[in-house]
Amino acid sequence: MIDPYYLQQFTIGISLGMVYALMAIGFTLIFGVLNVVNFAHGEVYTIGAFAGIMAIAAFGPPFLVIVFIVLAVGALSGFSLERVAFRPFRRFSDEASLKSRAMREATLMSSLAMSIIAREAMELLFGSEFQTIDISYLINKPISLGPVTIVNGDIIIFLVSVLMLGGLQWLLKYSAIGLSIRAVSNNPLGAKYVGINTDRTIVLTFVIGSMMGALAGILVGLYYGAVFPSMGFIPGVKAFVAMVMGGLSSIPGAVIAALVLGVAESLSTTFMSSVWADMVAYLFLIVTLVFFPQGLFGARRERV
């Protein structure tokens, strides 16, 4: 019989992993389509959390309404992020400049710059400390299941994430939008030649990815009751780790890696002080990069 304590840590790990998965998918989608890393993804997560608590403070809507508000704000921030930080650097669309390192590094820097601006602006507006949230909205009411005590947030996060992931899979597999996203990520130039509007597809990818990121933000914000301007950095790094472990362009890989990461992190607090738990993710990152450079589930890539 497994000690209930481990079972409990395991459930917490799963819901943590689900949140990382939501974020990692945003990264993976954008990386797949543009071949660049979006460093401002962590700030989309923060923006989502802030949008949610502002909605709560303003008119206290029911939970589902908050979810939709956050999704809308996420979509808007993804759209403007693409406009400001990515489109100006996509002036040329021949194959050489699509694959060039200079262009990748320019968008890397510009998204980094946008993330600094967004974070500092939020710090100026709201202050750097924790925001106060209406207690009744927090999703950490305990539920006992036999010997294991979990909170309702675990279930909500799990359900919402599964719904979003399922929806995304459906979108990618069976809709015209999903088809164009897959085409652009497979071969941008080829997609353009067969008449797909690549700019529109890229915007849509940002919108979808940022919706997921923003939703992860509000879920975590309500789960821990901690919303502050720099909250997005660490989950952003971890989602990135999950994406690298999953093999960069594989969505199921990223989800599995995110779950592994979440469970490992939550179980590691049993053996060491929780301040060192972040170390687990960084160790995973280095070990993956050095020993499994293609990721655990990815297709072979030329060079890493």
């Binding site: 890393v37 390192r101 990748r104 890397l108 790094v237 990135f240 780790v241 690298v244 960084y282 990152l285 280095i286 990069l289 450079p293 890493v304």
Partner: peptide, 10 residues
Amino acid sequence: SIYFAVATLG
């Protein structure tokens, strides 16, 4: 490239 950048970040 980016893999190195992420490794140094970590």
